[in-house]
């Protein structure tokens, strides 16, 4: 059985406020697994930005700070840095 890659999730903005933490490390093959793992460690995020392995509307993931995605089936590679943030950039 293939081991799930280890990735870092960095919480930003309102997600960080809710998580009470800046980042965490998780093993997950894709974003769906990752969000489930994040919700297990930070249950307070379920219903805020996460919803049963998906991102709630208004939230985005950024792969290494360069590309945004909301696709839960997206595969993850070892060492990737996933930013979890609100999509609202109004200022």
């Amino acid at each position: 059985m293939t081991e799930s890659p280890l990735v870092t999730v960095e919480f930003l903005g309102i997600v960080r406020q809710r998580a009470g933490d800046e980042r965490g490390e998780f093993a997950a093959k894709n974003l769906r697994e990752l969000w489930r793992a994040v919700a297990e460690q930070y249950p307070q995020l379920e219903g805020v930005c996460l919803d049963a392995g998906t991102l709630k509307n208004g939230y985005l993931a950024s792969i290494d700070g360069r590309r945004f995605t909301r696709n839960s089936e997206e595969s993850l590679s070892p060492g990737e840095h996933i930013l979890l943030l609100s999509a609202d950039a109004g200022g």
């Binding site: 903005g13 406020q17 950024s62 700070g65 609202d88 200022g91």
Partner: peptide, 21 residues
């Protein structure tokens, strides 16, 4: 939730996000 960011951090909440990106 759609206005949560504005209530909790204000627009200044953009700073760290923009810096990180």
């Amino acid at each position: 939730p759609a206005t949560e960011k504005y209530r909790e951090l204000g627009t200044a909440g953009n700073l760290l996000v923009f810096n990180r990106l």
